[in-house]
Each structure stands twice: as C-alpha cells, then as structure tokens.
Amino acid sequence: MSVTLDEIAQFFYGSGEVVLGWHGAQEELIALAEQTFPGKPFCLVKQWIIADLQLTQAEQDRLASMGLLPKAVYAHEVVEDSRRRFAPGHWVRANFGISHDHPYMFETKSTVYLLLGDGVRKPAALSTVFSFRA
C-alpha cells in the first residue's frame, strides 16, 4: 500500500498527545533499564513519537496472539545505541512493542528504547509508520 506525503507530514508534524519522557541524567535511565531488563540492548532516543497503530480487529488479534502490542516508536534522533547499530544523530523506527509498562521505556523483542525528554503519542496507519526505512 502506498503512503502519501500528506500522511507522512501528518505523522511527523501533526498534533498528538504530549507524553512525558525522562528528564534526569541519561546514566540514571540506562542504569534503570539495565536493572529492569538485564542483558537487553538499549537505544537512547529523543524527539520521539509513540504510534498507536490503526489496525483492523483481525490485525490486532494476530499481533496479540504473537505477544505484540499495536504500537511502535519512531525517534528523530538516536543519542546512544548500546550495540552501535544506529549512529548518534540518526533516526530510528522500532518494530512492534512487547511492553510499555515503564513510562520512559518502550520494549521490543530485541531492544529497549529509552525515551529522553517529552514526546508525542498519536494514531497512525501501519503503512505510514512502516514505510520509513534507512
């Protein structure tokens, strides 16, 4: 499915619900993540968006059956990636989440995204969010 420039602009620049992120020292957030998710790689990000994916009920049920949330994170800026997959200053789009129980941490199967500063939460089409590729 093709995505329009208007849909992408709305995702990046449209309004959304402001969500509080971490405002303390980065080292403290990293230590908290290592305690909460021992051994799991982390990616420290800022200028982030939590996308509540707009899915059909069948798509939601399928994700739930795989233990996945209908959410993803997009960040305009990587600050630090513990496995050096993403260079500082680069953008990143996470895969589907598996937990978002901690307000400053968004967990996927492979990584915990640590959310620095305030971000935005907004609904988005699956095709829009997953159209971003490095």
Rank of each mutant, 00 (worst) to 15 (best):
M105P: 00
N95T: 15
Y13W: 14
C43N: 06
R62C: 07
R121W: 05
G117M: 04
H100Y: 13
R84D: 13
L69F: 06
L69R: 03
V19P: 05
A58K: 10
S131N: 04
F12K: 14
L115H: 08
T128D: 01
L68S: 08
L53E: 03
Q60R: 13
F132S: 03
E80Y: 14
M66L: 15
H23C: 10
A134V: 10
R62D: 14
F42V: 03
A33W: 00
L63M: 12
G21A: 13
R93L: 11
V3S: 03
V73R: 04
K109D: 11
I30H: 05
H76F: 08
K109Q: 13
E28G: 04
E77Q: 15
H100S: 07
Q35A: 14
G14D: 09
M66W: 15
E28Y: 06
Y74Q: 09
F132Y: 10
V120H: 07
F12T: 07
T128M: 01
G39R: 01
A25R: 14
M1N: 09
D52L: 04
F106H: 05
S15C: 08
L53M: 02
R121L: 09
V92S: 10
G119K: 02
S15I: 14
I30D: 03
F86H: 15
Q26N: 15
F96M: 08
R85D: 11
R93K: 13
L29Q: 02
D81N: 13
I30P: 02
D61W: 04
E77A: 10
L63N: 09
Q35I: 06
V3R: 03
T111Y: 13
E27N: 14
A64R: 14
F130S: 06
I49D: 07
Y113P: 02
A51T: 08
H102T: 05
K71C: 05
I8R: 10
S99H: 02
A31H: 04
I98G: 02
G39W: 01
L55W: 04
K40G: 01
M1E: 10
G14E: 07
E7I: 10
Q26K: 15
F11E: 08
S82K: 02
S110N: 15
H90N: 15
D118T: 11
Q10Y: 07
G97K: 03
